[in-house]
């Protein structure tokens, strides 16, 4: 559904996006991860035909983003949620969504049905005639999601959809993304939130100007061999720490009653460490995997690209 080949964007001397090549299939949820200024928004804007490419090629739904005659067709089959909700604050939730249904040329019956379905799904139906200016950030974001979906787009671009939202609103939006996937829609979203990416994405790309890696969150995480586990004990004494240090050789740090140990394979190493702790007389209360595999992969890849 989305194909890019060497996609590049330069603003003067600055190369914001450098030769990105990727493919996103129909019905796939793809997450683009990267630090601020990594080129996530610019990539999304190029794919939405909002900014032109400097080099390379890309197609969305088979249409070429570089061809002026295809831009209108691409915009007709995509739904976009920008970084900022960008609603008409004086207008009601329903009018904000309805405007986009009209501008996409959705027939009134279908438009009304879609507006009702989306506003109900997002818990906004009772507030449909309230001016959105009085809404919280999370509620505004939900209105903006409804706006992006009112014309049943085949491809949905979401830029930081859950940034700064409360956990409940974030969960609602994650659930909507998963429902879109079940409906066979393609979702391409930018996020800083690695946990969210792991929960909803089929595949993720890590970008920092250029694309550093693309794979499923699980596969990217499994590539990481340097992870850390926290073992919280009822009481941690020097003998117990010494026992673990002897068994592990290094990468052991004690803070309060918690022991932090660098592990390569948590499934193999964690039970062994618990055994050492127990043998040394320690009583283990909690075992916590501190760095998710994806987080470790992300930090390593982004760090290495500096």
């Amino acid at each position: 559904m989305i194909e890019t080949q060497g996609l590049t964007k330069r603003f003067g001397d600055l190369t914001a996006v450098n030769s990105v090549t990727l493919g996103v299939g129909e019905g796939e949820v793809f997450g683009l991860l990267g630090p601020n200024g990594a080129g996530k928004t610019t990539t999304m804007r190029m794919l939405s035909c909002l900014v032109s490419k400097s080099e390379g090629m890309a197609t969305v739904g088979g249409y070429d983003i570089g061809r002026a005659s295809d831009a209108e067709k691409i915009r007709g089959l995509i739904g976009v949620l920008p970084e900022s909700a960008g609603l008409y604050e004086d207008l009601s939730a329903r009018k904000n969504v309805e405007y986009y249904g009209k501008i996409h040329g959705v027939a009134q019956n279908r438009r009304d049905a879609n507006i009702e379905r989306l506003l109900k799904r997002l818990g906004l139906w009772d507030q449909r005639d309230t001016a959105v200016g009085s809404f919280s950030k999370g509620t505004k974001q939900k209105v903006a999601i409804a706006r992006a979906l009112v014309h049943d787009p085949k491809v949905v671009f979401l830029d930081e959809p859950t940034a700064n939202l409360d956990p409940e609103s974030s969960k609602t939006i994650r659930d909507v993304i998963l429902e879109l996937k079940r409906d066979g829609r393609t979702v391409f979203f930018n996020t800083h939130n690695l946990d969210e990416a792991q929960r909803v994405c089929d595949r993720v790309g890590i970008i920092k100007g250029r694309l550093l890696a693309v794979d499923s969150p699980a596969r990217l995480g499994n590539l990481e061999r340097h992870r850390r586990t926290a073992f919280q004990l009822e009481r941690l004494d020097g003998d117990t720490v010494a026992a673990v240090k002897r068994a592990r050789g290094g990468g052991v740090e004690a803070r309060g009653d918690t022991l932090y140990v660098d592990v390569e394979d948590p499934l193999r190493d964690n039970p062994e460490i618990v055994q050492v702790l127990t043998k040394a007389g320690g009583r283990v209360v909690y075992v916590t995997d501190l760095s998710s595999g994806l987080e470790a992969a992300y930090l390593r890849l982004v760090g290495e690209s500096r």
Binding site: C49, K73, S84, I103
Partner: peptide
Amino acid sequence: LDRSLEPLLSTPAT
């Protein structure tokens, strides 16, 4: 200023 332009420009409106 209201940040409503980006979503509008991403519609098929020419």
